[in-house]
Amino acid sequence: MSRLWQIVQTLLGLILRHPVTGTSVIPILPDGQIVLIRRRDNGLWALPGGIVDWGEDVATAVKREMKEETGLDVVKIRRLVGVYSAPDRDPRMHSICIVVEADVQGNMVVQDKLEVAEIKAFTRSLLPPGEMSHDHLQQLQDYFNNQTTLA
């Protein structure tokens, strides 16, 4: 039994000690506004997104997360904004975030009431001031600077 437990511990260590892959989306409405969500867990504004599910590619995760969190449909993924992997970028875990710009459309409706407190569209000049969740402010700054970032 001791050997079996060692194997289980080794496997759990390998699985749990690897970063989790997720996405953030910079959603652009037809009028050019950017959609943000207010997270329920910390009350901060954030880009929609989440963890890529097992067996799912990143493009599918982007579309699923947009629909789940905002009710909006992804029309087109425009470009890769960056890959963010600093171990402290997410206070909950070490995660790697693949950020894309996407054209979206539809009606904004909170779908996941456990995660999302509010959805709102902002013009660039009227984005909410102050701190944003995780490293989303940096992601937006890189987007506005037309950068593709590996951080």
Rank of each mutant, 00 (worst) to 15 (best):
L4H: 07
G50S: 05
I37D: 06
K120C: 09
I98W: 06
H94V: 15
L11C: 11
H18D: 13
H134T: 12
P129N: 12
T70S: 13
V110S: 00
W5F: 13
S95V: 12
P27V: 01
T23N: 07
R39P: 03
V83A: 04
P27C: 05
K67R: 15
G32R: 02
G130Q: 12
E69P: 08
A151I: 07
R38I: 01
L127M: 15
G50V: 03
P48D: 00
E101P: 06
R64Q: 10
D142E: 12
Q147L: 15
G130E: 14
A117L: 06
L72D: 06
G130S: 10
Q9Y: 03
V58A: 08
L44W: 00
D142N: 14
D142L: 06
D41W: 01
M1H: 10
L12A: 10
W5I: 14
Q33I: 02
S85Q: 10
K113E: 13
V8I: 14
V110Q: 00
F144D: 13
R78W: 03
M108W: 07
G50Q: 06
V99D: 11
I119H: 00
A59R: 13
V52L: 01
V74K: 00
T70M: 05
G32H: 07
L4M: 09
N107I: 13
G43R: 00
F122K: 01
L137G: 11
Q105K: 14
M66H: 05
V62M: 01
R39T: 07
Q147C: 09
S24V: 05
L44T: 01
I96N: 04
V104T: 09
H134Y: 14
D90E: 11
E115M: 03
G49P: 02
V25I: 14
V20I: 13
F144Q: 08
Y84L: 02
S125T: 14
R38W: 00
E118H: 04
A121E: 10
N107A: 12
N145M: 13
E69H: 02
P128L: 08
E131R: 09
C97V: 13
H94P: 10
G22M: 03
C97I: 15
V52Q: 04
L29N: 02
I34K: 01
R89N: 15
G22Q: 01
M132T: 12
G71R: 04
L14V: 06
L12S: 09
V35F: 02
Q9K: 05
A121V: 08
G106V: 08
R92C: 05
I34Q: 04
I96G: 02
N107D: 15
F122N: 02
E68S: 08
Y84P: 03
L36P: 05
D112C: 00
L80W: 07
R39D: 12
Q147A: 11
